[in-house]
């Protein structure tokens, strides 16, 4: 369902969308059931001349309560268990586990820009050939990346809707995570935590490159003139 509104661009995007779809079906059923019952009762028991409302004593109420409360209670509990299992398994994959990664990218947020430190041709961070860019992140299709997220000033949030990835950046901490791009193209990076008056002008570009594009970008000498320090 979500892929209709936002393309899936990472290895776990479809798992998150699958979870959303499962929740949609479950809550959709309960929602339609409850609203259907609600409107039917309103129609069925609208005031009619000469008819008096029913009066249920304790005994009658107890019997009705079984159908109206106890049964839904148990069914909802079953739904909840399924939902929790789904939520936790997706969450564990995206946020807790750390797969074998190919490369690391360092992301630093500040008011109001993103700095991306790429490993460069040697694939190792913190070496002479690192490529540091502002508001422009380059990753290779199909490679698994570890990211190290930090903030220089206030709380920001690194969000790539295409990846279904979002993580707050906290000043004073380095938060790690991972992603594996599966769709080539140019996409938005958003800051999704309010970070001052420039929050609305803090976009960045994500380039998911094919190996050839990535090699061409690496070879561009302007990085070594403009950004390297």
């Amino acid at each position: 369902m979500l892929e209709h509104y936002m393309k899936q661009g990472s290895s776990y995007a479809s798992h998150i969308d699958g979870l959303v779809w499962m929740i949609f079906l479950m809550v959709g059923f309960w929602f339609l059931f409850a609203e259907g019952m609600f409107f039917w009762l309103l129609w069925r028991y609208r005031k009619k001349p000469g008819e008096k409302a029913a009066y249920f004593d304790e005994h009658a109420e107890h019997k009705i309560k079984y159908n109206w409360v106890e049964i839904p209670h148990r069914l909802i509990l079953v739904c909840d268990v399924a939902l929790i299992v789904g939520a936790i398994s997706v969450w564990t994959e995206v946020k807790i586990s750390m797969p074998q990664t190919d490369e690391t990218v360092r992301i630093t947020a500040q008011q109001w820009a993103w700095t991306f430190q790429h490993a460069g041709p040697d694939g190792e961070l913190d070496t002479m050939d690192d490529i540091t860019t502002v508001d422009e992140l380059h990753v290779q299709l199909g490679k698994t990346y570890k990211f190290e997220l930090a903030s220089k000033d206030v709380i920001h949030s690194f969000s790539v809707p295409l990846f279904r990835l979002k993580q707050d950046a906290i000043p004073g901490r380095v938060i790690t995570g991972w992603f594996k791009p599966t769709l080539a193209g140019e996409f938005d990076v958003q800051c999704t935590e309010i970070c001052g008056i420039g929050h609305g002008i803090m976009p960045a570009k994500l380039h998911v490159d094919t190996p050839e594009e990535y090699a061409a970008w690496l070879a561009n000498p302007s990085h070594y003139l403009a950004y390297h320090y």
């Binding site: 309103l42 409302a53 029913a54 249920f56 109206w68 409360v69």
Partner: peptide, 28 residues
């Protein structure tokens, strides 16, 4: 996540009880 999803049970019960109140009523 577990505690949050569990809140659905009492809230859903409340909603069902309110809807059930209409059952057998004479609604204006």
């Amino acid at each position: 996540s577990v505690t949050t999803v569990l809140i659905s049970i009492p809230i859903a019960e409340m909603c069902f009880v309110y809807i059930a109140t209409l059952y057998g009523g004479s609604i204006t």
